[in-house]
Design a protein around this nucleic acid. Structure first.
Lengths: 238, 238
DNA sequence: TACCCTTATTTCGTATACAAAATTCGGTAT
DNA sequence: ATACCGAATTTTGTATACGAAATAAGGGTA
């Protein structure tokens, strides 16, 4: 049924310890799998999640599935429906607007703070991110492009030195991914995005904080109107 | 042991249906009880949460407790400690600073939006909130004062018409409550707070959006410096 | 044929049970 | 007395089991 959920048991079984971290619990793994399925659209808006089905697919018991769904519910990614189980939250265009309205203030603010607190590693880090972004654009892989975009903006957030900014955006990224997976059909629009990113970094590294802030503001506004028109074209039902 | 947790079984047993809503699940109730215990300081920073103990105290099984803790973990209110269970996240003064830095931008922005989208019910709603705030100050109940303060700011957020703003602050309120429960020993400082609130509302209702925005910015800055000095006085260990 | 009432099936919420991991405690050897 | 090793105890994570609620199905009657 859901392709991405197939063969997950192997991943869980392998459990390669990529770090010191204790291996992730089944709850965390189940959460991440479901989150990803929702964000990529594999689990579509309105679709029902049945615990038995998911548990069987992942070869785990219903218990971790139940906990994972509790977290998804707390993050507004699924919603209670009357009495029986949960459904994937419908994609809400108004929410999308609100997220960009929010970003239009938060992202320039993050740039301004970043200008004051730029770490030494900034130049190297930025180079790597910009490179991976351009590589993603060349590859044409929409998922990779989205991830690179998120990575770029989270880099700015981290430079800002204010963890609350990154935290406040974490949930929003999920919703953005969900909408973008629908919107981002033509990758041609992705090229100017990375030109913007490079401009922002250049001005930041050159010490022109205010310039970089203005660039970021402009960048968000452009992204907003671009995706808005794409969404409207997609669903003409106003 | 923990007084606030006592007698909860009765609350759970009563289950008076105050609305159409299906009665809350044990997971939700457990989550709220634990959240409240953490925010009021009854469960102190660093304290360990043992599932058996909590389950026994609440007369429920470990299952809902486990799920509730998963959500607390996702909200950064408890943290994994090595291998055995979780502890209440230590109060982080830097996080507190970051929250106020964040608010210094978000709250004025919310006021600006509210000025553009003020609902008709605003006047009545504001009157009730301001009244309950002053009542809380008169009563001297620190918890009630905190709740009234949160209610006021959430009212502004709702007026802003942007749900992302309110969502992004939801977790922050928990941390603010936690720190404030420590700080707010002298309620004398609470009076000017509600003068500020009244000023903001007055200017908003009079159509002076920019004035209200400036008042809000000033209000947050004052609250920030006030609580910062209180915190520093409390823990001189810089 | 359409509607309603009764029964069967799904599916969730919660409790209980079991096994693995980690800590603590006690005993022995140096 | 101290350090180290092993058994007993805690405590968690996960699986299984059970009961309740809601939907779906089926049959009888108007």
């Amino acid at each position: 049924m859901h392709v991405l959920l197939e063969g997950v048991r192997q991943q869980i079984a392998e459990q390669k310890m990529d770090s010191i971290k204790p291996r992730k619990s089944l709850v965390e793994q189940t959460y991440e799998i479901l989150l990803n399925a929702i964000c990529t659209g594999e689990l579509g808006p309105g679709e029902r999640l049945t615990q038995d089905e998911i548990a069987a697919k992942l070869n785990v018991s219903r218990q971790p599935v139940n906990s994972a769904i509790s977290i998804l519910k707390a993050n507004q990614l699924v919603a209670d429906t009357g009495r029986r189980g949960v459904i994937v939250t419908p994609i809400d265009r108004d929410l999308f607007q609100s997220i960009y309205e929010f970003r239009s203030v938060i992202e320039p603010f993050a740039v301004r703070l970043a200008g004051m607190r730029l770490p030494e590693s900034a130049k190297n880090h930025a180079g790597a991110i910009l490179e991976s972004g351009n590589a993603a654009v060349r590859s044409g892989d929409v998922g990779a492009m989205l991830q690179a975009d998120i990575d770029f903006h989270e880099m700015i957030f981290r430079w800002s030195g204010n963890p609350v900014i990154e935290n406040s955006m974490r949930i929003n990224w999920h919703h953005i991914r969900r909408s973008m997976a629908v919107v981002l059909k033509d990758p041609d629009a992705a090229l100017p995005v990375w030109k913007d990113h490079a401009d922002i970094v250049d001005h930041l590294l050159a010490g022109d904080t205010e310039g970089a802030t203005a660039f970021m503001h402009n960048h968000i506004e452009k992204a907003h109107s671009r995706s808005r028109t794409a969404l409207e074209a997609l669903e003409p039902s106003e």
